[in-house]
Computed example of a mutant assay.
Amino acid sequence: MEYQERPTAETSRWPLPDSGQRTVIPPAVLASVRDHPLCSGCMPHGVGFYPQASGHRMARQQPADDLLIYCVSGAGQVTYGGLSQPVEAGELLLLPAGLAHRYYANPQRPWSIYWVHLGGPEVQGYFDEIAGQHQPGIRKVRVGVHSRLAEDFQALMAAATSAQPEHLIYAANLLRSLLAYAALMRRQHQVRHATLDVARVNSYLQTAMDQRLSLDTLIAATSDLSRYHFIREYKRQTGQTPMQAFLRIKVSHACYLLDITDQSVAAIALQLGYDDPYYFSRLFKKVMRVSPQQYRQERGKN
């Protein structure tokens, strides 16, 4: 299926500062390479960068081409189909042709965005790969802020400024590379935020044996996961909850101290963050099935 000529990309009229860029490729120039096998499936129509775009806004009732927006700082808002969503740094907006939408910069924290209007029969396949699923409509995808992705946009902008056919072929394949890299970063982002480094968590627990550590403090120090996902992932990998593991670490150290020292139960409890030795003894018995005193007696320590 060859690339079909489309109308000129409909960009916003936001006043472009010196540090911004906006390039729209005329339809006649696109037509000069529309039959070329290296770019007929996915072609940029326009590309740009709007830094700290205060006052930037756009509304399209029936956009003629697809649009990809990458927010690298600040924030914005997108509205479509009666829904409104915030857009934050590190997020991509995938806006397919034909679907009405509005978007604008956050008045207090105006976004900085890279964008590319694009078209061709391969675009939706790339959009599905970036989103991780086939789903009609407008999609928002978190990939994180990556200097490499920004550099890809910069390279695409440089290539798209030339009307020479060889430069447009190069620009089309830079665009393919950019889309594939965005899909890779989405997957990497999900992997980093969907798994838990249990060794890191356990190492932190070992260093906090003298504390009455809260679960929220543990999560903040060792993971980006939510409370629910942190507990679920830790239990999936270890068979116990994080706080159960913390108690076992404390009790294991208490057993060591009971074995090699003559310290009182109260002194050992205090070292493990418990002011109340009776409360500590109950926790110890819950794990070991005997009290600290019985544990010591059974091992010949008076």
Rank of each mutant, 00 (worst) to 15 (best):
L175H: 06
M185A: 07
P136W: 06
L156V: 04
N202W: 01
A182N: 05
S264F: 01
L205A: 09
A150E: 13
Y228S: 09
P15Y: 04
A150T: 04
V24Y: 00
V143D: 05
A75I: 09
S203V: 04
Q240Y: 10
L95W: 03
Q237M: 08
I138E: 08
R289Q: 13
L257K: 06
Q154C: 02
L178C: 13
V72P: 13
A89F: 07
V24N: 00
Y274S: 02
S281R: 08
A182S: 03
I169P: 01
Y228L: 03
A208H: 10
P15W: 09
P26V: 00
K285E: 10
A183E: 10
R227M: 12
C42K: 07
V141L: 12
R232F: 09
H189E: 14
D66P: 01
A182T: 07
E166I: 12
R13T: 12
G98E: 12
F280T: 01
P63S: 09
Q124R: 10
H167N: 15
Y50S: 09
V24K: 00
S281Y: 09
A53T: 15
V123G: 07
M243A: 06
L168M: 11
Q85A: 08
G82C: 12
L196V: 02
R296I: 11
P121T: 06
K140F: 00
G144T: 06
V290D: 10
P165D: 14
N202D: 10
M185V: 02
R236G: 12
A183N: 15
S19C: 01
